[in-house]
Design a protein around this nucleic acid. Structure first.
Length: 583
DNA sequence: AAGACATGCAACCGCATACGC
DNA sequence: AGCGTATGCGGTTGCATGTCT
């Protein structure tokens, strides 16, 4: 059953979600009840009354308000039928033979090519039904489209121009990879999708980690370089402020949100979809003297230490880059030439070093394992030339810390981000990325009021927001911002941050800051039910955020506002007179 | 030398849509 | 209109490979 948190202020309610064993008709009714519950939108109780527990709501009332759930159930049912039909088709098409999965071999490719040559790129299902291949039609089509189709640029890195196109079109189309791919000759939607994903992760890494150094050798090198005049011209003061939450970048979602953290925490105007990166022009206009001379990220990357990262993942891009430069002696752009600032970095391919493709090479040497080949290759590559040490990032100077302190107070006067929050596209999407990003967003907006477009398009284009005049002083970076006062506690707990501006939440004459626990919804059990629910306007996970937290919704439909007053109890948290099963 | 781990790509999966019967 | 089928799309996963320690 659904109840209300005792002790909650009268005007706000919070559900106590039970641990439902879902499956029985009564459970469906529970879901239906919940889906139309006044919780969604956090409704205000009628004056002097309490919401009834759902168990005491008449069945007809519940039934009349569960249309959204009915639709969801219908969709789920249709999906189940579809899957079952697909299984039947697969079984029938193969005559009961097992479907082959996994990598394709040359013989299969030849069969598929021959089929396309004779029949054209269609009738994929017939390939299996005719016994040509033990593959599903979907698999055959995918193989053809992504690998066998003529004129594909397989194995060729995205050029700077292609990157530019992807970035521009992603702004326009969003994650419509197939559509974007039509603008790129020889590229498939899968190519574009992987490219984008990889690029996002790399940029997140680049902007997130201060690249701590472990080895003594690297530390010495770092110390030497940090004292050199050249070290003043790095992005260290910026990158060093990027919050590093101590997790590796294995999670796609986390990487994305960390990236948001980074860009906002540093108050650097950053266009996620623009390879011009970081918009340093704005910093110049703002007179960011502490960053003089201004640098591109490309010049920053030249400072990346070649070795000694605490995380192989974080360092990989840099080391690969250095490997390539060292070996091929050409500008090498692993993540996109414009991103790295190498104007000439249009060469798509770099001659493989002998340390590469060790597994493949090992097949040619039966007496050696792939690891043998790998290590021999690595040794050969490193020994003659030695490791190419690059000036690492300098440690943050005390001067920088002072500047931080000075500007901390100015954070209060930054443009409020509030007005655009309601425009965020949180619509209950099935994408966990989006959901999580929304949650994380609560953090970054508090620590740094930079308008951020989750969709990655017009970063600062929200109506009502001010231009991102963001002086790039490390003073406004995360470590000195208000967020630093609340060290994060992983994995999900997020402390309460004061909202800088939620004007619609303030009632007339109410000037008290509002607080929200952005991660509170993670405490709620049965989160898997949330997609079934009517999303609250304003998108925020304002579920269950009572803990000294006061929240008013901007606006929300009250599914129960039309109910007569006698539908409401006179006291808080009445004991249900009936149970769900009674209904 | 070898294990641990990160990375990138190919393939898969589930869902949506179009189309024909 | 309803159903089955084919195809396309976006998100996710598995694995070969590379890198670091």
């Amino acid at each position: 059953m659904v109840g209300w948190t005792s002790g909650c202020p009268r005007e706000f309610v919070r559900p106590v979600l039970p641990n439902w064993p879902v499956g029985s008709p009564s459970d469906v009714l529970r879901l239906a009840t919940y889906a139309t519950h006044p919780l969604f939108g956090v409704h205000k109780k009628p004056e002097g009354s309490a919401f009834r527990t759902t168990a005491t709501l008449p069945r007809e009332i519940v039934a009349s308000r569960c249309a959204p759930l009915s639709e969801a159930m219908a969709r789920a049912s249709a999906a189940a039928r579809r899957r079952a039909a697909e299984r039947r088709r697969d079984a029938a098409a193969g005559g009961g033979a097992a479907v082959r999965k996994g990598p394709w071999d040359a013989e299969e490719d030849a069969v598929l090519r021959e089929h396309v040559r004779t029949h054209g790129p269609r009738d994929w299902s017939s390939i299996r039904s005719k016994g040509l291949l033990p593959r599903t039609g979907k698999s055959c089509r995918l193989r053809w489209v992504n690998k066998l189709r003529p004129n594909l640029k397989s194995g060729c890195k995205f050029s700077a121009e292609e990157e530019r196109i992807v970035l521009d079109l992603q702004k326009i189309f969003g994650n419509k990879w197939a559509r974007i791919a039509t603008y790129l000759q020889g590229r498939t939607d899968n190519d574009v999708k992987n490219f984008w994903s990889t690029r996002q992760k790399k940029m997140a890494r680049l902007l997130r980690s201060p690249l701590p150094v472990r080895s003594g050798r690297s530390r010495r090198a770092k110390a030497a370089v940090a004292s050199s005049p050249e070290s003043r011209f790095t992005l260290g003061p910026f990158l060093d402020q990027v919050p590093f939450e101590g997790s590796s970048s294995n999670g796609k979602c986390r990487a994305a949100t960390s990236f948001m953290d980074a860009q906002n925490a540093a108050l650097v105007p950053y266009d996620q979809t623009n390879s011009q990166l970081l918009g340093f022009q704005g910093a110049k206009a703002a007179g960011a003297s502490s960053l003089e001379p201004r640098l591109t990220l490309g010049s920053f990357l030249d400072q990346v230490p070649f070795e000694g990262s605490s995380s192989s993942g974080q360092c990989r891009a840099a080391t690969s880059f250095m490997d390539a430069k060292n070996t091929a002696l050409v500008p090498y752009d692993q993540t996109g030439s414009q991103l790295l600032g190498f104007e000439g970095a249009l060469l798509p391919a770099v001659p493989a070093t002998d340390s590469q493709a060790s597994s493949s090479n090992a097949r040619l040497l039966p007496e050696m394992t792939d690891n043998d080949v790998k290590n021999v290759g690595c040794t050969r590559q490193k020994r003659p030339a030695g490791r190419l040490l690059r000036p690492p990032l300098p440690v943050p100077s005390s001067r920088n810390r002072n500047v931080k302190t000075e500007a901390t107070s100015s954070l209060q006067s930054q443009p409020a981000v509030g007005p655009f929050l309601g425009l965020l596209p949180f619509d209950g999407s099935s994408s966990s990325h989006q959901d999580h990003a929304g949650t994380q967003f609560m953090d970054v907006q508090n620590s740094a009021p930079v308008p951020y477009d989750q969709a990655g398009s017009q970063l600062f284009g929200f109506p009502g927001t001010q231009p991102p005049v963001a002086p790039i002083t490390d003073s406004q970076a995360s470590s000195s911002s208000e967020a630093s006062l609340f060290p994060p506690q992983l994995p999900f707990y997020q402390p309460q941050y004061p909202l800088l501006d939620f004007p619609w939440m303030l009632g007339s004459g109410d000037t008290t800051p509002w607080f929200v626990n952005a991660g509170a919804m993670d405490d709620i059990a049965n989160q898997e039910l949330l997609p079934l629910l009517q999303p609250a306007p304003g998108m925020f996970p304002f579920f269950g955020m009572y803990d000294g937290v006061r929240i008013k919704p901007r606006s929300s439909p009250d599914h129960f506002s039309d109910l007569p007053s006698d539908f409401f109890d006179s006291d808080d948290q009445p004991s249900p007179s009936r149970t769900i099963s009674d209904l």
